[in-house]
Nucleic acid binder design. Structure first.
Lengths: 143, 143
DNA sequence: TGGCTATCGTTAGCCTGCAAACAATCGGCT
DNA sequence: AGCCGATTGTTTGCAGGCTAACGATAGCCA
């Protein structure tokens, strides 16, 4: 018995490829359902975090979203440009930049959250409810 | 009985967030195991596809990898810069750009494939073998 | 033959993501 | 007071990813 032949390396079977494809499809659904006037996926994640937790420093915001500092900066800059967020130095600690929702964003958020639920449902649509719960549980363990 | 309260929208429970986090972790593992001298995740995917299928037009390559044309162009350009790929116009059809592996890439590929297997294993390490198979099957259905 | 349509690739512009190097500020400790 | 290390944010440079608009070529069909 010689060396067993190495099994073929099938790109389509690798988790990394599958994760990328599934996330890619999710992002396409996100954009399609949220529409041109809505936030992007990461912009929405930032807005919803500020909604639930109140004003945060860029750093804390980034930590909650698993975004590194340069990425946070870019997302916040685009949120400011869209008029959904303001940014002010914290008077008590001059290092911090407190990011806060604008009234316009607060008014729009309930509608966006509804769409976000639809996006989650669409992403999971190919699976039944039981498998949807299973995949979420498995992904959580992979983080 | 009024309107039932809408369940809280928990970002951390949304599939999109979980997919992003899992893919993020996978990419970090990829870079760590493949090292500075190795290809990036998408560069490796392109190389392995050319290895298995022979020279391909940019378009076909992109289709196999689920990459759109501008992204393929960028990846191929960086592969050329690294000396792992050449690009020539197809004499039979002047629209096509045939992308082919260089001998250097062919020589390095077996080692990279071994590392890629280790990366897949590391990504799935938090799950047992049964759950690893389960998550792959579920992700495939979500594509 | 001449033209129509489909395919292929490029460009420009935008968004997300990472690492590395850097400046400013804060806090504690001497 | 003065210094040092930790924290926060910025910049630069690179890699991937999408849309939209555009030029070039091929293939078919009238």
């Amino acid at each position: 018995m010689g060396t067993p032949p190495a099994p073929e390396y099938q790109l389509e079977d690798q988790v990394g490829h599958l994760l990328r494809r599934a996330y890619q499809r999710h992002l396409a659904l996100f954009q399609g359902i949220m529409g041109e006037d809505g936030p992007t996926s990461m912009q929405f994640a930032a807005l919803v975090t500020l909604w639930r937790q109140g004003p945060l420093s860029q750093n804390l915001l980034g930590r909650g979203l698993a975004m590194d500092p340069p990425t946070v900066k870019g997302v916040v800059a685009r949120l400011m440009a869209r008029g959904w967020v303001t940014r002010h130095r914290d008077p008590a600690d001059a290092r911090l930049l407190r990011v806060a929702l604008t009234p316009a964003a607060e008014a729009a958020l309930p509608g966006w959250v509804d769409k976000a639920r639809a996006i989650t449902a669409a992403t999971l649509a190919p699976l039944g409810p039981a498998d949807a719960a299973r995949v979420a549980a498995l992904l959580r363990r992979m983080e």
